[in-house]
Design a protein around this nucleic acid. Structure first.
Lengths: 135, 135
DNA sequence: CTGGATCCGCGGCGATACTG
DNA sequence: CAGTATCGCCGCGGATCCAG
């Protein structure tokens, strides 16, 4: 049963399937903030098969700006999804690699990819029908 | 094997696990745009156990503004996740209910909730460690 | 090759007031 | 009860230039 309760500290919490989802500090929202970005999911998929270098990722996602490539990588690193390894060669090369946490999440992401592919047509259809009714 | 290819129409496409993810019109991004919003996932969880009325949802998520409640519901309806039924009583009451598509997505969302709960601590820890190293 | 710094527009989201 | 209308903030993300 889902319900909203107040904890001792005055924190409001929603219980869902026995999992506490705080409204102020919600785990799901944290994860969605990490992976809900425009490029994050594609980036993780790009690292699915093994470590990749900066320019490899740039080629993998041709229409990402280099600013967002850098920022997305830093955010993923900050949250522990990937590691960043610098090789002091000349010119320098940097390698990005999924952590165990990142690989764990990759499994979830694959489910999402599959579901999206299967239901994309239905969503688009619903949207067209809705917009037609509005016009 | 993941790779970026060009289709006949000149559309750039990424093949992931055999699933085509267009860069211009990506199914996963569509889904994440639907569910990546600040309130969407909570809203779907709120409808998990059965149909709910506007004010019930408002009580379920106390700190949502009524503007965002309306907008989130309309977006979910537009994409086919929920239906909206108006009962012309006095005063009027409106019932929101998950569609088969919405219930299908709910299964995925539950996985996400579970994963988030299990790994939230690890993410927070990684973030603290990263920020400590930056300071 | 791998970034950092800066400028800026757009859209998500919140607050408030009003309505059938 | 269940919305609609308007305003304004702010952060995401793109473009461009610069650097080790």
């Amino acid at each position: 049963m889902n319900r909203t309760v107040d904890r001792a500290e005055g924190e409001r919490v929603v219980l869902i399937d026995g999992v506490a989802m705080s409204l102020d500090d919600c785990p799901v929202r944290d994860v969605l903030d990490s992976v809900g970005g425009k490029w994050t999911s594609l980036m993780i998929m790009g690292l699915a098969e093994g470590p990749r270098r900066f320019s490899q990722l740039r080629r993998f996602i041709p229409d990402i700006s280099q600013r967002m490539l850098t920022q997305t990588l830093r955010d993923l690193q900050r949250d522990g999804y990937i590691t960043r390894t610098v090789y002091p060669t000349k010119p320098p090369s940097v390698e990005y690699r999924l952590t165990p946490l990142g690989r764990s999440f990759l499994a979830l992401l694959r489910s999402l990819v599959r579901w999206s592919a299967e239901n994309h047509a239905a969503i688009r259809a619903a949207r067209r029908a809705y917009d037609a009714g509005e016009a």
